[in-house]
Design a protein around this nucleic acid. Structure first.
Lengths: 189, 189
DNA sequence: CCACGCATGTAATAGGTTACATGATTTA
DNA sequence: TAAATCATGTAACCTATTACATGCGTGG
């Protein structure tokens, strides 16, 4: 189960479920997300399995915090997972499904509006990642003296930026193509 | 439910569940996939809802085929979905999760091997889409006189090609960076 | 006093994969 | 005769989202 390994890896230092959720939301983890209702039971399962142990600590605000930390068994399981082959799953793009069947509407104006909206949505996402990348470039010793953690973080951020850039460019290219086709359609109408 | 709308859209002409599954597998549908155990119940649900109707037809080989076709209500539901805003969900990249936490192994050789393997996996996928794109370029009247269906198909294929190319390029760039870091590490060791 | 952030959880539902069950026809 | 393809389906399980339930402390 991938989420369990991600949580395990995020528990480099002891943390609560609530904290882990915040790290997902803060956009630090652009490649995955999870809800609290998924995180809490996962942590409980892992503790039962012996990968984590937890202690209750008082909180300034609100109820007691259950702080989880990795056990040796947990660290071993993580190490094994990190050494396994890359997990490349089927990616599912709902917006491509919409686009590919849009010909059935027989209305290129709809396609054009769709692509423009999509472009904006993807560009917004890209901007988030780009600014994170810019922030990283301000790190002390960038890029030659990054520590191992930041070095790996940089690689992963860059993948998000390049992949989203390619999609935004594809939107622009597609908008051009649809516009051209639309213009020709009108000329012969 | 996205799958239901995709099946609805694929039923441009009447088809069986088995046929729909084949279309997913043939790689024609690079943006989505589904198992028969998901397709059959989905078709049944849609028939109950009045989006599809089915008839039993004899088959040359094997059991009778249940052929589904869209009703007017189904066509209307599809049209509404196609006209809705682009569905941009959270993409989940398990291999980026592996990569980003790999610093905890403190062994750049593992990272390097990982990226090389990933590069090969992604390049294989890219090749599939690229050859589909090449095949499309051999279509009569390409690119200026494509019909609407092929035009939309081309746009969607191109997105797959560009997005995967970006990822392969990112792998290459990352392999370079890791190699350089590794070389420096050894020099000062 | 109410909304918001902190903090924990459960329940219901939806979406998806793997395994199981059945049986005909064709091809090696 | 064994495997592959055609063709339908169900059951069990895993993964993920949305909704529900509870309650403290702080700031407006």
């Amino acid at each position: 189960m991938i989420l369990e390994y991600i949580l395990l890896a995020m528990l480099r230092e002891p943390k609560t479920g609530y904290t882990l959720k915040n790290e997902f939301d803060q956009g630090e983890r652009h490649f995955w997300s999870a809800e609290l209702s998924q995180i809490y039971p996962a942590l409980q399962r892992m503790e039962k399995r012996g990968w984590l142990k937890s202690t209750l600590e008082p909180s300034d605000k609100g109820p007691e915090r259950r702080v989880y930390s990795r056990t040796k068994a947990g660290a071993k399981a993580l190490s094994k997972w990190l050494r396994s082959d890359p997990i490349v799953g089927m990616e599912r793009f709902a917006y491509i499904a919409q686009l590919i069947y849009m010909d059935q509407l027989d209305d290129l104006d709809v396609t054009l509006r769709f692509l423009k909206k999509l472009r904006d949505l993807l560009a917004d996402k890209l901007e988030l990642l780009s600014s994170a990348e810019t922030a990283m470039a301000a790190l002390p010793g960038f890029p030659n003296k990054l520590n191992n953690e930041d070095f790996h973080g940089r690689l992963s951020l860059r993948m998000g930026v390049l992949s989203l850039s390619a999609k935004v460019q594809w939107c622009d290219e597609s908008i051009q193509r649809v516009s051209a086709r639309l213009a020709k359609e009108r000329k012969y109408a």
